[in-house]
Write a protein that binds this DNA or RNA. Structure first.
Lengths: 289, 289
DNA sequence: CTTTAATAATGAATTATATTCATACATAAA
DNA sequence: TTTATGTATGAATATAATTCATTATTAAAG
């Protein structure tokens, strides 16, 4: 209203843009002037001439009006999926495997959506989901929570990696008890988050001689090559090293140690459509690769 | 409301700051979400978790809220006279005379008030007053308008300036008819705005041989010195030249040509108090100097 | 100088909007 | 399973905004 009156210098003209009666405008103006304790317009004969105070409010009003327009536009883009954020968390060692391919396909379809991977939330992702800090978690561990739904994505096999000449080399498979006298490498604690422990060693009540945390796969391979360490790793993660390094793989347990990956997200009905698309691309990629 | 809910993540807590019932907040939230067509908060169990859309609105809301606080503060300062603008218009040849002294006194009392002199509006100052572009006009011409009041400030005398040896040199005074065969210098047209013409020549229906516009007093003095031009000037404006230049002054008409200066401003009751102070300082300065 | 037309201001009536109240519903905690 | 706490909802109420009808003011027209 202030903007219109300032522009037109005149109540009756200002009214045309605003679709209200001159009376409404007059009342409003009077009220805001009383509330602020200053006159926004001087009444010079039949004209409304803006005062210094009026200019302050006008400048402010214009800023606010444009800010609202900008926000509204941003909101529309967001709603229509033209722009957006997709925040995912997963173990970073796995995501390097699939991320580039998925990103390529995804960003071609949703160029305005910004995908962020948060590798550090994996240990206990549920709070992050509940606080809205991530939209999804790619995890192999299912923790019950009635606000979260899990969607099965794909399965992979974990195999033991040992140096050539290691006692395990010619075994058809190893069992929990075989780990009792070994130095075992893992990415990080807690042990419950490591599939080998959760699915094999803890149920069998076996504790390895030593457990060492090493974050980099390359470094783990180097330590395995010394013959003093063993590592249980996803099959696809060892593959690149098998041809060039003196290491071999041995299945874990008779039927192999398999791991199922899930995509966890909030049970809500307003999830962005592109999240679903992202999941589909990811699932397809994992099955084909 | 959005800000409070986002901060607290919780309706019932947000309510405390806002002094409304949870119900009111819930209704408002629902309404704005319907209006915008997006959810601003996800309802995760008993928590309200902000969405991307919510974050857009929140950012916008925060900008607007701080903008309003800034504007309100500025307005208060303006109302209390801590800051402000004072826009004056007058003939620039006169203002150099009094402006420095008045400014010194004034700005000591009102350090936050910014004084602006607009020399170019003098010719027809009334529209500028009516449009609020200036707060006051220092003028010697009174133009009737029922929205404007004039306040008498001071009087000065205009004298004719001629070269030593000019035919007028020994006259006790000159009259309108004496100008008929002279080249007269003025600052600028229209002639009606020149006191000599308005008060003497036009009433007597006398037209000088030639009228020449020269904006600088120094240049006018140089031309007067040639003996071929006469100039009618405020006594105080010639004074600095009298001792060093071969020129003399002659009164105009038997009783002298006197000019009254007025300070014109809008008839309104919310004029800033410092304007009154400015006028008083100016009036005192002119009487004493 | 008077009349007319246009504009703003005002109070009461009306309409629209916001809030509360009384509940219902959902869920985490006990 | 019960209880406590938080959100949602519809109806009732309270508040705020707008219009309507009228008055006052003044520039423009006669």
């Amino acid at each position: 209203m202030i903007e219109s009156v300032a522009e037109e210098g005149n109540l009756t003209k200002a009214v045309r843009k605003l679709n209200v009666s001159p009376s409404a405008l007059s009342h409003q103006l009077k009220e805001i002037e009383q509330e602020l304790g200053v006159q926004l317009f001087d009444r010079i004969n039949k004209k409304l001439v803006i005062t210094d105070a009026g200019r302050v409010m006008l400048k402010s009003a214009q800023k606010i009006l444009t800010e609202l327009e900008v926000a509204e536009h941003e909101l529309t883009s967001l709603r229509d999926g033209d722009i957006g954020e997709l925040n995912i968390t997963t173990e970073c060692y796995t995501c390097y495997h699939w991320l580039p391919g998925v990103m390529k396909t995804f960003s071609r379809q949703f160029p305005g959506i910004n995908v962020n991977i948060h590798p550090d939330y994996t240990a206990d992702p549920i709070p992050y989901l509940l606080e809205g800090k991530v939209d999804g978690v790619l995890t192999s561990e299912v923790i019950k929570n009635n606000a979260i739904k899990y969607r099965e994505m794909f399965r992979d096999e974990l195999v033991a990696v040992v140096a050539q000449g290691h006692p395990w080399e010619d075994k058809p498979f190893v069992v929990a008890e075989d780990f009792a006298d070994q130095n075992v490498l893992i990415y990080s604690r807690p042990l419950e988050s490591v599939s080998l422990f959760r699915q094999v060693l803890i149920p069998a009540n076996v504790t390895p001689r030593k457990v060492t945390e090493i974050l980099l796969t390359e470094a783990q391979v180097e330590m395995v090559k010394t013959g003093s360490y063993v590592k249980v790793l996803a099959k696809w993660a060892v593959e690149p090293y098998l041809k060039t390094q003196p290491i071999v793989t041995v299945p874990v347990t008779k039927n192999g140690l398999h791991r199922t990956w899930y995509f966890a997200m909030l049970k809500k009905d307003n999830t962005a459509p592109y999240i679903d698309k992202f999941i589909k691309i990811l699932a397809r990629q994992m099955k084909s690769g």
